[in-house]
């Protein structure tokens, strides 16, 4: 089966990203596919490349990247939710005349249309917030 996940909680503030990650691993090990993960609302913070938790804590961004690398899971970040929270790609930073950026591949900034498309395409769609 094909799964899609919507994540709306920030790492280290909410349990949602960790629950989602645990579920994702379990679903993949049962032979299902995860077509995509969409980060919305405070969930966009999962994508920050400046995230630097202490060494004894899981780096959530790296965990998502590992999921992408091993299972080809698309990591989409809502652009409007990200920009207003200070998360942006190099391209968006340039467009807004800013020096710094903190969203890099494999995370992709995209619109809400992508969320609707993901929900329509998947056999199962789940929210973690």
């Amino acid at each position: 089966m094909e799964y899609g996940l919507l994540i709306m909680g920030a790492p280290y503030s909410s349990a949602a990203p960790h629950s989602a990650l645990r579920f994702a691993s379990a679903v993949l090990s049962k032979g299902h596919r995860i077509a995509g993960i969409f980060f919305y609302q405070d969930g966009v913070h999962n994508a920050s490349s400046l995230m630097t938790p202490p060494q004894d804590e899981l780096n959530m961004r790296e965990a998502w990247i590992e999921l992408h690398q091993q299972h080809n899971v698309a990591l989409d970040v809502c652009i409007a939710a990200a920009l207003r929270r200070g998360l942006m790609s190099e391209l968006e930073a340039k467009r807004h005349g800013l020096v710094n950026f903190n969203i890099e591949a494999p995370f992709e900034l995209t619109g809400l249309g992508q969320l609707l498309e993901l929900q329509q395409r998947c056999d199962r769609f789940m929210t973690f917030a």
Binding site: A81, L112, L116
Partner: peptide, 14 residues
């Protein structure tokens, strides 16, 4: 941001 999802759904013809 919830209302935004409703608006985008409608904007896409849903």
């Amino acid at each position: 941001e919830g209302l935004d999802v409703a608006l985008v759904t409608a904007a896409f013809g849903g």
